[in-house]
Amino acid sequence: MTSTFTLRGSNILGKTLTIHSYKGGTGKTSIAANLAASYAKNGSDVCILDYDFRAPSMQVLFKGKPKNYLNDFLDEKCDISDVLIDVTRKNKTKGKLLVGLTGHSTKTMREIMTKDRKWEMKALHLTLSAKATLYKDLNVDYIIFDTSPGMHYSSINAIAASDFALLVTKLDEFDFEGTKELINGIYDVLGRKTGILLNKIPTMHVPIGDGQKKLEEKLGRSFNFPIFGMIPCYCDVQADGGKTIYTLQKPNHPFSQSIEQLTEKLEDYLGKLDSSE
């Protein structure tokens, strides 16, 4: 059963994307950060929010000491605008680049584990209302959620608040099967537009030219969702340990070029969504 719907008025001012995966280690955070940087580099105003409350890592890529964390926002101690750090000048992007970080102390992560369903309900409402602030008051064009892998409240809240979900998966059976489960159990039910990105593919398995296109089409039919790209595994990106935003600091690297292609495909796809609704 496919139930597709969007809420009118929720996507007119901007686009909200969630970067999610079934398993960890698929490169989700790196993809999210580089995608946000790519949009900002190209002139769009972007806000990236680290909704991986269980293993936050966006602070490694976007260094900064915020006055408040997303945890404080969801605990209703401050507004969403009080959480954001503006890294535009530091990263010399054409468009604005705002980052919302999550508390990464053990104490903070332990507190998240104790939250009850009423808190999670409020967290959903706050996440939904944050979009209005970001679009209307801060004129953001794109909101990007980085999320915890698998089924966690914060991840599903982000998906519920999004126009589009990009599922990042590796080329292995565990990931494929789990990704299909997520699609059937969550994305399909919530009626979210979804796309798949294959990441960290061993180089010998990456076909080139027509071969890649044929494989993408085959996988797209298997998942029943469009494939947005196949990014090879780069040893130097792995060895870097997530410290570099490649689209800004190493724009000529093949990984950066893959992200640029992803950005173009997403813009094209999301643009078509607008005109079909």
Partner: peptide, 8 residues
């Protein structure tokens, strides 16, 4: 409560 689990 009307959280995502209920929504699903």
């Amino acid at each position: 409560p009307l959280d995502v689990a209920t929504l699903l």
